[in-house]
Design a protein around this nucleic acid. Structure first.
Length: 268
DNA sequence: GAGGATCTCACGAAACTTTC
DNA sequence: GAAAGTTTCGTGAGATCCTC
């Protein structure tokens, strides 16, 4: 019997390693608080799991560039299922090493959550083991396992559904209702929140790029920008939001952004 | 109730830093 | 200088809130 093989449902997972946090000379786990190192910490809020403490750990680099589904077990109990395109990166740069930025909103709360949970399990004397299934069908299998086992650390909403839709889209079966809704310019113009004025303004620009301050944009749209525009760079992403269509549809994209200060638009 | 606006999550790419 | 490691940013997508 191969002790490195473990069947979860009908899938053959390989044992990767035990997760072992770094310890000091006395064998005590080194806990750290990377959020203190973030230069802009005064301007952003910690995410739900950003408070820490966190630990550092690594898995063998043998697992680099391996795409598939991973499972984390705590004392023989399946606690988390995830997917990745590179297992080594996911753990050695993601879960195993929390960067300062990731403790804050707009960072990677899942990394914080999993790292902190692993630390707590190990502090309670439990052993945390990692298993991996190399597969291209990572989204489908991840979803299937989460639905079947309801692992404690997996969130119940958002990602799983998104992953499923991503798969459907990738195989050409997705019905992109959300995107179609966003592209419904006729109704959007009725409730555009002033962004039509921004479209019109950009349409009149003759150069290839323009830098506008937040105040200038507010004057153009004749209202204040929403708080999210000040807090989240994601608000300015070129897609994924209905308001982005107001600059995209006239051939512009956001090139650079200084939150709360200015935005550089450039022609697509 | 419909649909736009906002918030949040998650991944990967890019940029930057460190090590050899 | 190249490779490896680390950190930050950009993007896409779903959930929820809000307005009409």
């Amino acid at each position: 019997m191969d002790v490195n093989i473990f069947y979860i449902h009908q899938y053959k997972f390989e044992y990767v390693c035990d997760i072992i946090p770094e310890t000091d000379d006395n064998g005590n786990i080194i806990e750290y608080y990377p959020q203190d190192l973030y230069k802009k910490k005064e301007f952003v809020q910690l995410n739900e799991y950003g408070k820490g403490p966190f630990c550092r750990f690594k898995i063998p680099t043998f697992w680099a560039k391996k795409e598939g589904v991973y499972c984390i077990f705590s004392d023989e109990q399946l606690v988390y299922v995830g997917e990745c395109v590179d297992l080594s990166k996911r753990f050695n740069m993601g879960y195993g090493n929390i960067s300062p930025r990731n403790c804050f909103k707009g960072g990677q709360p899942t990394n914080c959550k999993v790292n902190n949970f692993i630390l707590n399990e190990i502090k309670q004397g439990k052993s945390v083991k990692l298993y991996f299934l190399e597969t291209k069908e990572r989204f489908e299998i991840e979803k299937e396992l989460i639905e079947k086992f309801h692992p404690q650390w997996n969130s119940q909403s958002g990602k799983n559904i998104r992953s499923n839709n991503r798969v459907l889209n990738e195989i050409g079966m997705g019905v992109k209702i959300t995107k179609d809704k966003c592209n419904n310019i006729k109704s959007a113009s009725v409730r555009s929140g002033g962004y039509e004025e921004l479209s019109a303004y950009l349409k009149r620009i003759t150069g290839d790029s323009i830098r506008l301050t937040f105040k200038e944009i507010e004057r153009i749209i004749n209202r204040t920008l929403p708080p999210s525009a000040y807090k989240h760079a994601a608000w300015w992403a070129n897609g994924g939001h209905s308001h982005a269509n107001y600059w995209l549809k006239v051939g512009w994209r956001v090139e650079k952004i200084a939150l709360g200060d200015w935005v550089v638009f450039s022609r697509k």
